[in-house]
Design a protein around this nucleic acid. Structure first.
Length: 444
RNA sequence: GUGGCCGUAGCUCAGCUCGGUUAGAGCGCCUGGUUGUGGUCCAGGAGGUCGCGGGUUCAAAUCCCGUCGGCCACCCCA
């Protein structure tokens, strides 16, 4: 009778369930970002999770190839799950270019999949939250991208943060001045490790990997680690690159000036020449964002400018600039530094049920309160009042409305303040007004 | 993908080194004390395939192998 085989409930490595608390944090984060995107004129899009493999493999090297969830569908098509939102955006823009017009500014929030090894804050299914401006080379778009990042982190109110800005043209200028240009990719990857393994180790790696002389490595690292105000750093690097980095310096100068004009504190937007970003499609501005309280978790929002988003899907040249908010990494960081507000913002009123045979009446009162702009949860059964109040307490409701036999016959309702424990009895006709007054909200 | 650590109640963990009676604790949950009032207190209770599978043994949470999952480093990146 009871020997029915139970399938063990489990989830795949790197895939997770989200319980209500975790999900509320995710929604808070995404809602905040979404509001900022909209305020700057970005519009939402979505694309399929599954694409033809040739679409996804068009760009990207052997690394993405390995990480791809790829299989043959029931119709014999070679398909794969998207591993980021940028490649689908490229396909999307190439395919719908005629209907979109430029500049095209979109944001996209959705899961992506990578079959790589897991770690804290790194999963096989994770959420990306991207925004990009396509079809303009104006640096105003770069400035805006940085400003969007700034506005999101300011709105989240999770402590201080710094957006590190650099420009690939500066790095390219330095590398050509130092005659290391042909090893750009390797050098950049090495530079990215600077904060992690330190200056000496990077110098060593440069010598081994690309055969840089100690003098070359020294000069490069000296330029990259220049400190000072944004203006000082820019002036110094222009000097060190001997004019080869002028275009990049000018671009960075303009972006920094724009951010200052927008009221961004200098401490929140810093020129940092050691920010390289391994991704090779960036060609101009690059940014990474670090939280002051937990910089070691890495960048929680990164991006940059690229010359041509979709060259493999269309002959239309599509320059752009954008960034990606690392939702899962950011949430992991906030959890660690105790900045996650787990108090839920659910309904503020619990309508208790006293007499199951009158459930329609309770539904009616709750509905009328909601029509007045209140958030009301109706307890679904006439359980012991103590249990219902306990439930209200656990769910974080601020008020409990109690209507029992006495109240029904008197045409009244009891309103209990869950924080103070005080309760008062009011006419049913003034219940809505009383709730609004106690909650400090205004009637609709 | 390579290497290391780990996996016991819903959660945090003890027990494992040197196999041996009904596997424990705190918190949480449920019930009662308070027949219509939560958060405190008191009493009681439910809840465990010791991740899963196999092996050694008279006997395995404990030893061995495999596997799944988590964490960490490398790699790469969000």
């Amino acid at each position: 009778m009871n020997d029915r085989r139970i399938i063990q409930p489990r989830t795949l490595k790197g895939f997770r369930d989200f319980l209500p608390d975790a999900m509320q944090s995710r929604e808070w984060l995404i809602d905040t970002a979404r509001a900022v995107f909209r305020s700057h004129g970005y519009v939402p899009i979505d694309t399929p999770a599954l694409e033809y493999t040739e679409i996804l493999l068009g760009k990207g090297g052997a690394e993405t190839d390995k990480q791809l969830y790829r299989f043959e569908d029931n119709g014999g098509r070679d398909v794969a799950l998207r591993f980021d939102l940028t490649v689908p955006l490229a396909r999307f823009v190439a395919q719908h270019f005629g209907e979109l017009g430029v500049p095209f500014k979109r944001y996209h929030v959705g899961p992506v999949w990578r079959g790589e090894n897991t770690q804290r804050g790194r999963y096989r299914e994770f959420l990306q939250c991207d925004f990009d401006t396509i079809g303009t080379e104006s640096l105003a778009a770069d400035t805006e991208a940085a400003l969007v990042i700034h506005d999101i982190f300011a709105a989240l109110d999770i402590g201080e943060f710094t957006i590190h800005l650099n420009n690939r043209l500066v790095l390219a200028g330095l590398l050509s001045e130092l005659e290391l240009a042909e090893h750009t990719a390797d050098v950049l990857r090495s530079i990215d490790k600077l904060p992690k393994i330190g200056r000496d180790a990077v110098a060593g790696e440069l010598r081994e990997l690309v055969g840089a002389s100690p003098a070359q490595a020294d000069r490069l690292l000296a330029a990259l680690t220049v400190t000072g105000t944004n203006e000082e750093v820019l002036a110094r690097v222009a000097e060190l690159a001997g004019g080869a980095a002028d275009a990049g310096v000018a671009a960075l100068t303009e972006v920094v000036a724009g951010l200052a004009a927008a009221g961004v504190a200098p401490s929140r937007a810093r020129v940092d020449l050691s920010i390289a970003r391994g991704l090779d499609y960036y060609t101009g501005t690059v940014f990474e964002t670090f939280l002051a309280e937990i910089p070691e978790i890495g960048s929680v929002c990164s991006g940059g400018r690229y010359d041509d988003l979709a060259s493999i899907y269309t002959k239309q040249r599509l320059p752009g600039v954008g960034a990606s908010l690392g939702v899962d990494r950011l949430l992991a960081a906030l959890e660690e530094i105790g900045k996650l507000d787990t108090s839920d913002a659910g309904p503020s009123i619990l309508m208790t049920m006293f007499d199951g045979s009158r459930s329609a009446d309770y539904v009616g009162v709750a509905a009328s309160l909601r029509r007045g702009g209140l958030s009301v949860e109706l307890y679904p059964e006439a359980r012991k009042l103590g249990s219902q109040l306990k439930y209200a307490d656990r769910k974080g409701h601020r008020l409990a409305v109690i209507i029992g036999g006495d109240e029904w016959s008197a045409g009244t309702a009891q309103v209990k303040d869950m924080v103070s424990g005080d309760s008062q009895t009011v006419e049913l006709g003034t219940l809505e007004e009383t709730c609004h007054r106690l909650l400090g909200t205004t009637p609709r």
